[in-house]
């Protein structure tokens, strides 16, 4: 870690614990997160949302101290000029359409009508939602709701973006667009903190990864090396939905990076286990181009990250 980066440039957790009555949310978390994309990864119930809510002050720590670029979340009037948060909660103020939703939020910030209008459309454009802006948010699809929440998080140009499962529900194309938006923002010096319960979904795009399990942070930092090692023992799984799965399976199985290619029960897709996800994706592109396959979706299928934790923490991953 560089000594030049000060507290004012980092998101810092010092020995933070949060209990919901008797229930453990997170325990003794210490983190120091630099700018760039940070992936916060853990299975359901591991404490990702709790950690993010603590970060932005929707929850108060039972113990410990949190500082976001030196700011105190208990002074929202200052804090939320610099922080944007897209929550996991999928509820919206009733009766508003996409642009009204963003505009009202900016007006609550105190921006004037004209300024809020311009910022609204800029944000909607960045997430590719201008066309649906006039429709009621309540009628949006899951992917559109994710995007309008993202627009809300970025519309006031914050320095810290906290995004709870922002890729959940996005199709592969939207996912790629959103990921490149994260990259762009992070390259501009922002903190982009993204949670996911799928390690393979975020470790490729993250500059650093925080792994959380049972309320404890079990690993933190650049895990590229860990991942390489891990793939030896725990191959990545990729699910591909396409028109000619048998052809795809036979082509990719010939490659030595692929350990297994199994056709889905409904005959409309292939599940591939691979030691090298990067190489596999290149291979997939090649096969698709050569054979003119029609791909519906490509998604990591490692929903069960427990395997990863077992590897990382050398236990069965039970809460202690």
């Amino acid at each position: 870690m560089s000594a030049t980066v000060t507290e004012k440039q980092r998101v810092i957790f010092e020995n933070v614990s949060k209990f919901y009555g008797e229930v453990l949310g997170v325990n003794r978390v210490s983190l120091s997160i630099p700018p760039g994309i940070t992936g916060l990864v853990g299975p359901n119930g591991s404490g990702k949302t709790t950690l993010m809510n603590l970060m932005v002050g929707l929850l108060r720590p039972s113990r410990g101290r949190i500082s976001v670029l030196g700011m105190d979340s208990q002074r929202p009037e200052e804090f939320f000029r610099h922080v944007g948060y897209s929550t996991q909660y999928d509820a919206f103020p009733p009766g508003l359409n996409g642009s009204q939703f963003i505009r009202s939020y900016l007006r609550v910030h105190g921006f004037g009508a004209a300024e809020a209008e311009a910022m609204t459309w800029k944000a909607l454009e960045r997430v590719g939602l201008t066309e649906a802006a006039g429709r009621k948010v309540a009628g949006y699809s899951k992917g559109m709701r994710q995007r309008v929440k993202l627009a809300q998080a970025i519309c006031h140009q914050p320095s810290v973006l906290v995004l709870d499962e922002p890729l959940n529900g996005l199709d592969p194309m939207a996912r790629a667009e959103v990921i490149s938006l994260f990259r762009e923002l992070a390259d501009g010096g922002l903190h982009v903190i993204v949670s996911s319960h799928i390690l393979h979904e975020v470790d490729l795009i993250s500059d650093q990864v925080v792994l959380i399990h049972g309320g404890y942070v079990v690993a933190e930092g650049d895990i590229a090396n860990v991942r390489d090692e891990m793939e030896e023992e725990h191959p990545a799984q990729v699910s591909i939905r396409c028109d000619r799965p048998a052809l795809l399976a036979s082509r990719v199985f010939a490659q030595d990076s692929v350990m297994e290619a199994r056709i889905d029960d409904d005959g409309k897709g292939v599940l591939v286990r691979t030691r090298d996800a990067d190489r596999f994706h290149l291979l997939l592109n090649q096969v698709v181009l050569e054979n003119g396959l029609t791909i519906e979706a490509v998604a990591p299928a490692d929903a069960d990250v427990n395997a990863v934790y077992q590897y990382l923490i050398g236990s069965n991953g039970e809460k202690s």
């Binding site: 004012k8 670029l69 000029r81 610099h82 921006f111 004037g112 914050p158 320095s159």
Partner: peptide, 16 residues
């Protein structure tokens, strides 16, 4: 003084 706001990317100024 030197706070996050001045270090960070273009955050629109609060209405004067």
């Amino acid at each position: 003084s030197e706070t996050a706001a001045s270090l960070a990317s273009p955050t629109p100024a609060a209405p004067a």
